[in-house]
Design a protein around this nucleic acid. Sequence first.
DNA 1: GACCTCCGTTGACAGCTGTCAACATCCTCT
DNA 2: AGAGGATGTTGACAGCTGTCAACGGAGGTC
Lengths: 232, 232
Amino acid sequence: MPETLIPTAASAVPPRASSIRPPRPTPRSRVVGENSTLLYEGGRNRSLYRVVDGCIVLSQLLDDGRRQITDVLGPGRLFGFTVDGRNIATAETLSIARIEPLGDADLNATNPTVASELKTTLQRMQVHATLLGRKTASEKVASALVELARLFNRTGRNGAPARLGFHLHLTRADLADWLGLTVETVSRCLNRFKREGLIDFSHPKTMRVLDPERLEATAGFTRHRTGDAARP
Amino acid sequence: MPETLIPTAASAVPPRASSIRPPRPTPRSRVVGENSTLLYEGGRNRSLYRVVDGCIVLSQLLDDGRRQITDVLGPGRLFGFTVDGRNIATAETLSIARIEPLGDADLNATNPTVASELKTTLQRMQVHATLLGRKTASEKVASALVELARLFNRTGRNGAPARLGFHLHLTRADLADWLGLTVETVSRCLNRFKREGLIDFSHPKTMRVLDPERLEATAGFTRHRTGDAARP
DNA sequence: GACCTCCGTTGACAGCTGTCAACATCCTCT
DNA sequence: AGAGGATGTTGACAGCTGTCAACGGAGGTC
């Protein structure tokens, strides 16, 4: 039963039993349940939000129901950008999440931090466009795993990622909507990767990367770099 | 013979014979020839640029040569955004273009106009992601035609677009790289639309929209709008 | 605890789009 | 004007990915 808009109460939110990463209390931050729609594309809102903890996806819909997830947000990322006062995208939680509203003023994005985030997001979108338009199904799924492993790896961000286990917050359908594929194709790719020893999972969302190098190779990860000539 | 980086001279640039839209002289603006690479992805630059006139595309490359055009820019659009001082995308001219460098300070995007442009671009990228991930070849090509007709229609922007003729600055290969298709598929779609009376072209780049409504219908254009409930 | 829906997996099959090839046309350069 | 390359078109064919279907299992509700 998805809630709508931003609930103020942390109703269905038992703080995780042995909470490994204690949610640091942030000014005005709120906890939101899983599968809540926070913002609707085309709707109005008066604030930007920062993801403090959890996983949030942005999406757009075509009127026949086809969905495209345009971004997957982890801790630190901002969302709620508007054009002409209207939300660019729908925002939904894929996990219990803690979000922190930013002031009205930041809506104008004249805040340097916000502007920087905008540019980073723009870059991410362009990289994802290249994935959507020019990568094969296997490359897409492998790319997604590499990216999500970085975002949500279990070991925290204390230097070396011990074993590349992470919680996949997305369902197969979410992955499909993110990568421009169907559920069946995503499932087939994941299980092939599993058979080939690239990854492993017993529960559908408990992922472990067994062979990072081959996975990244499968992702066709490196973008072409013309860069500038080395300046000696 | 593509030039590299920003040339200061307007070498191969005969100002268009009966120039309908006289290039308004802008402070410090420069004219750049067709098929020039202005910026390289991963390279450094110290300024943003505004497109005063002409057509410029942004692109990314995978290292095996696959290319994705991430945006098509017309008059008024900005480009040259960086992350960590590095260009996000390669920028190339598809026509003789006039560009105007903006000050260093604007690189930080704290200028409200720049910030607004960033948000608009972000929205465009998300709409395009939906196209790349969730539309069929026909829908993609039709969408592209609708968008390019708006961008480059011949009648200027004096209210009603008389007859929807416009100059297609992109080659079939450019269209393919923009839409995530192959040249052959693009060509087949365009010629089918021509047979069906949606569009017409004698020269490959001289496009005319004959049936805007059916073309937009083919584009599957309307995105789902949940909007806000009407407030009586 | 039983039911029931959602989610994930797997197989069979089809069709959209990519691949390969040949050819036409346009443009540039000599 | 002629040569040659880039661009565009069209056909034949293949294969990647989508579609349809069936099934199993997990989680949630009563």
